[in-house]
């Protein structure tokens, strides 16, 4: 419903914009000759791919998480595609997507026609390393794309750049900032966002120090419990850096997750606070598992539904404030 509405909006707005642009070109051709938007533009992304265009991209299509980052700097994407329904994604709540075409609401499903209609100059998505060393597999499709064939079709619409989402959280934010600067966001705008972020970061550090709690970030289903390895997920890496203690029983082992069957649940019950992924079991379902029901944090009600936030200054500032208040209202239980 909303998708078709925004598509309709895009269809209506596109010609209007075109007319406006044409009008602008014809009536005031020399109005702003020094505008950097008219100069040739080149950008090398985290995969080493260099995109060269004859002007700075004004019309950007993006995967949801990076779209949120761009929006936080006032760059409105012309199209956005997500892994979940964009219209009901709370993370967009602060932003107006009225002028943005939603061209995908499921991982790998992108409406190429609608995207082409939005006429982007550049497509932004991410790439996840395949291991702890940060290896990027460029023979596999980028994050958010179904396969190489789809990626090739997308590249015909506009060049694609990828942000590496792995390793240190601050590196991911820096990568988004580098792209945003290249797209014309001023240093002042980034500095303002950073100030807000630094305040929240300092507050999280303070909250972590006063509370001295262990936080378990996990996903659970009938299969068992998946515990995030703090060093492998950029967000938990960032918060660890800021002083939050995460459950980290096997820092070396498998990449990204430690998986525990339900009968092994006792091995991961060291946390004081549980951040459970919104897409898996919630508190009630966890309490129904006999091998987990006695978890001290669960018994104490210190279970919070948790969603991955976008890695940009503003999203992270809000997420860190949320975590800081969770830490302040929780007590040590184990």
């Amino acid at each position: 419903m909303t998708t078709s509405r925004s598509r309709l909006a895009a269809a209506l707005i596109a010609p209007v914009l075109t007319i406006a642009l044409l009008a602008g070109c014809s009536s005031t051709p020399q109005a702003d000759p020094a505008a950097s938007a008219d100069a040739a533009w080149s950008f090398t992304d985290d995969t080493g791919t260099t995109v060269t265009l004859d002007h700075r991209p004004e019309r950007v299509a993006s995967y949801a998480d990076y779209a949120i980052g761009l929006l936080s700097y006032g760059l409105d994407p012309v199209a956005v595609f997500g892994r979940v329904d964009v219209a009901s994604d709370d993370r967009f709540a602060d932003y107006d997507l009225g002028d943005t075409a939603v061209v995908g609401n499921t991982y790998g499903e992108i409406d190429l026609e609608a995207l082409a209609e939005a006429a982007p100059d550049l497509i932004v998505t991410g790439i996840y390393p395949t291991d702890r060393e940060g290896t990027l597999d460029l023979t596999a499709p980028y994050y958010g794309f179904a396969d190489m064939e789809q990626q090739a079709q997308l590249e015909k619409i506009a060049p694609v750049v990828a942000i590496e989402v792995g390793g240190a959280g601050s590196d991911v934010i820096d990568s988004l900032n580098r792209l945003s600067s290249a797209l014309g966001v001023s240093d002042d705008t980034i500095a303002t966002a950073k100030a807000e972020y630094d305040t929240a970061a300092a507050d999280l550090t303070a909250a972590a120090a006063e509370s001295d709690l262990e936080v378990t970030q996990m996903y659970a289903s009938a299969d068992g419990i998946y515990v995030v390895k703090p060093a492998d997920e950029p967000e938990t890496q960032l918060y660890s850096d800021l002083g939050v203690t995460f459950t980290d029983a096997h820092p070396d082992g498998d990449y990204y997750w430690d998986i525990y069957s339900w009968e092994n649940a006792a091995q991961m019950m060291t946390g004081d606070v549980l951040l459970v992924n919104v897409e898996g079991y919630g508190a009630a379902e966890l309490a129904a598992q006999p091998t987990f029901a006695s978890h001290p944090a669960l018994v104490a009600g210190q279970v919070h539904s948790w969603n991955g936030a976008a890695l940009d200054y503003r999203s992270q500032a809000a997420h860190m404030e949320q975590l800081a208040s969770i830490l302040r209202e929780s007590k040590a239980v184990s």
Binding site: R83, V84, T106, Y107, S221, A222, D223, G224, S261, W262, E279, A288, Q289, P290
Partner: peptide, 23 residues
């Protein structure tokens, strides 16, 4: 047509005795 449904269905359709209680 719905990825959330697919995710839940995927776990169920495999057939498993894990995480089941007698309740």
């Amino acid at each position: 047509s719905d990825e959330t449904t697919l995710a839940a269905y995927r776990i169920w359709v495999v057939g498993s005795l894990s995480g089941r209680t007698l309740d």
